[in-house]
């Protein structure tokens, strides 16, 4: 068993994929980081101090983890959901009562979304109270603030999609607030967002596109920059 496993990890096929052997020596451990696309956001070595759980509380990493959960569960929800006034609510009912594990899927997506808003806020507090925004990390803090705004917007645009009373009036209250931006700008912003003066078919499609494409892509790009900056600014 053990020998077979060893043989596999030494085979050319394995090598061609992973380019390194098992992480048994410090050398192969370092290689495991920089030959791996997903791990190379990390340096090969990290400070022991920054590993202490009560320093970061894992909050940034868990925010990213929640984002992954949201993308995965969201993609599955998209298979059953159609963004039209005729169908949206019925599709939610189908998810709850017809689709296997549909309710569970919806729950995962909903609770992860709420958790992410809170998690990102807490991460911001951690960064503040450890003073980790100070030079050279100041710009990464700014990227973080933008990420926080995007997180809230993602959650908010998703809120309309079930097209129930909660969704409809929650969005109406919010877009009415946007209307109060002065110089007629508010009216325009809200018109642009809703595709009209009321929350209707156009608003649903716009929120859907923002929620499922524009905002997640923008957030992913920003997260990429954020993680890259964490490294370039000298690590946590």
């Amino acid at each position: 068993m053990r020998e077979t496993f060893r043989a596999i990890t030494r085979s050319q096929a394995w090598r061609s994929v992973f380019r390194h052997g098992l992480p048994l020596s410090n050398r192969t451990r370092a290689e495991a980081v920089f030959y791996n696309f997903f791990l190379h956001v990390h340096p090969a070595k990290v400070r022991r101090r920054s590993l202490k759980f009560t320093y970061t509380w894992g909050l940034g990493g868990l925010s990213a983890g929640l984002f992954i959960v949201l993308v995965a569960s969201g993609a599955l929800l998209m298979l059953y959901y159609r963004p039209s006034v005729q169908q949206a609510y019925g599709d939610m009912k189908d998810l709850q009562f017809v689709v296997s594990s549909g309710q569970f899927l919806r729950n995962m997506h909903r609770w992860a979304a709420h958790a992410m808003v809170a998690m990102v806020f807490l991460h911001m507090l951690r960064v503040f109270y450890t003073g980790s925004y100070r030079p050279p990390k100041e710009f990464n803090w700014v990227i973080g603030v933008v990420l926080f705004v995007f997180t809230v917007l993602l959650s908010y645009t998703g809120y309309l999609l079930p097209w129930d009373q909660l969704a409809y009036w929650g969005i109406s209250v919010g877009t009415n607030m946007a209307r109060s931006v002065p110089f007629g700008l508010g009216e325009r912003i809200s018109f642009l967002l809703l595709g009209g003066n009321i929350v209707g078919e156009n608003a649903l499609v716009r929120f859907y596109v923002l929620h499922c494409f524009v905002l997640p892509v923008a957030a992913m790009v920003l997260m990429g920059i954020h993680f890259w900056r964490v490294r370039k600014d000298g690590g946590v």
Binding site: R29, A30, L39, P43, R47, R48, R49, L51
Partner: peptide, 8 residues
């Protein structure tokens, strides 16, 4: 700085 390997 006390450094440790990222993996593991």
């Amino acid at each position: 700085e006390d450094l440790v390997m990222t993996v593991p």
